[in-house]
Design a protein around this nucleic acid. Sequence first.
DNA 1: CCCGCACCAGAGAGCGCTCTCTGTGTGCTC
DNA 2: GAGCACACAGAGAGCGCTCTCTGGTGCGGG
Lengths: 347, 347
Amino acid sequence: MPDDASPRVSTLEDVALVAGVSRASVSRVVNGKAGVAAHIVEAVNDAIARTGYVPNRAARSLVTRRSDTVLVVVSGSDTSRAGPWGPGDVLADPFFGRVAGGLMSSLRPRDVHPVLMLAVTDDERSRVLSYVREGSADGVLLVSAQAGDPLPQMLTDAGLPVVLFSRPDHPLPLSYVDVNNRAGGALAADRLVERGCRSVGIVTGPLDIPGAEDRLVGFREAMARHGVAYVPSAAGTFSVESGVAAMSTLLADHRVDGVFASNDNMAVGAILAAQERGLTVPDDVAVVGFDDSTAALMCRPTLTTVRQPIEEMAAEMARLLLERLDVPDQRPSAAIFEPALVERGSA
Amino acid sequence: MPDDASPRVSTLEDVALVAGVSRASVSRVVNGKAGVAAHIVEAVNDAIARTGYVPNRAARSLVTRRSDTVLVVVSGSDTSRAGPWGPGDVLADPFFGRVAGGLMSSLRPRDVHPVLMLAVTDDERSRVLSYVREGSADGVLLVSAQAGDPLPQMLTDAGLPVVLFSRPDHPLPLSYVDVNNRAGGALAADRLVERGCRSVGIVTGPLDIPGAEDRLVGFREAMARHGVAYVPSAAGTFSVESGVAAMSTLLADHRVDGVFASNDNMAVGAILAAQERGLTVPDDVAVVGFDDSTAALMCRPTLTTVRQPIEEMAAEMARLLLERLDVPDQRPSAAIFEPALVERGSA
DNA sequence: CCCGCACCAGAGAGCGCTCTCTGTGTGCTC
DNA sequence: GAGCACACAGAGAGCGCTCTCTGGTGCGGG
């Protein structure tokens, strides 16, 4: 530590001394407590300015038993969402950054700070528990990209405040935010039918992920409503390459003229695969994506896609946790967001 | 807090009581200090297991004056890197996630945790300073996407340990990691020339960003070496759309047959713009990108691009900070990584 | 005029931990 | 067998803060 200028950083005590009041009064002023005489407030603020006082968070946290910190856990196997960019892959998906941005918009006004943690191994999972047990964080915001993730269960068992992004894969007494995936699938189906597609297919995500399953179900239900009983499907892994592969089999086996891909990455892959076969999008085959991510504007034609308001969802997720921390004995609640179709060129 | 199961979380004292030793001994065992008799170690570990003891980080931090936490600051104006996805845009670029992943790979083994902070306003910048002043973080890892960012200066002035991603725009006594941008520009030039391009252009990033400037300089120098004195340029903002726009003017004004775009997003835009004009990539016009990001595989042809090892760079950045924290009186150092050309379809 | 009450500043304990310092027991040397 | 050094456990202070509790002051009412 560079102790050149300041041999020791100033404490409450120092401020009290300079202001000629007691530590308690300084504390009251610093924390904006009511019932302090104006002249004392002034003297203290003056002393604070003069000493450059900054309250020590560890000391405060020790007595208040609050860290004003939440743990943001990204829990997924390394290969589930993104490409071969090494460990920490999950983070390379812009999805993650958007979630982070949304979280921060709720956290910042409350002066709560997010600390990032990856949890793919068992060891890492137990570290998550320890971290909040040791009082380093007040709660957990969990973004799980993994099917059968034991972490939600572990956290509720431990009685720790947690909010999930996406519905957990089996019912648990905890809060989460999600998009109405069924409705999203229906939106895509309606669009494809409206365009006059006669033979539609779907590129799904990994079906052990509830959201991916729901999008499929919603899509199929809507197609059934339109009188189409059978919808061929091919599963992908949410990556561009998997979209290319899935689309290729769909095209080869079923000569589809309309496809719903369960996320934008795979939709981009689907467009690429179609074009490679000499097909024109959207005339020969229409493609609808899901997410409205940055990828939607990276392809031609640009992607018609089902938008999920990730930033807002993440913001709400943080808000739910904060609320839970303020009022501990709350029942868990779910916030479900309605998706919207964004019409661009591909369908 | 759900005090159902545990009325109070167990402390060192409790463990000491159970183990029948002193607090000091427990502390020694917990921290793996040498010189503790085997039977005591055993008794303590046993007691820890039985009580479910987890050390309180605030208390520890209060006395050690170490938080085992570093601040990861993303400092940039909201609009500099990514698209119109609202506030927190900077994070939507996969670039950020890759950096985060790289950082964590160095931080995790040392059990240091990253807390995330955005700094675009003055208020937020001063919060960064406060945060480490109040002992909440031991140092700062700064990813600045902004030209003329005052934060590096502020941090060095305050004498706080900081490491930058990318060379600061004016010389400062601090450590940073960067890629050899000049060499990267040269790699792109060599490739274009090698392909037989006779009229090359460059889509630059914002030229007040040192890295963008360096890529331009490196590219021009190499072209000069190949006997080409003049290289037309058009500036973009690192976004896909800006790449489309810049490429369009280059194509219209200079009929280029080879282009170097200063990042992959803009390179994708360049390909799109070329194809919109009925040109074939790479035959009519070759395109080289920079980064080797996820976008490189989202277009057809796939992107030939100058790879910068973002994860490794970020990992090194964290390592530099950790080192600086261990040995405070170190001179700042720079770690420059060599870029490499990744050959794919576009050039 | 004196008592009581409201209001607000100060004193002091203590949050859970680390770390220095002291004390004790052991094994060694002479 | 006495003295000494060494190894290791325990006692205790104190990190910077919050918060309860106490006590002093000034006012109004009886």
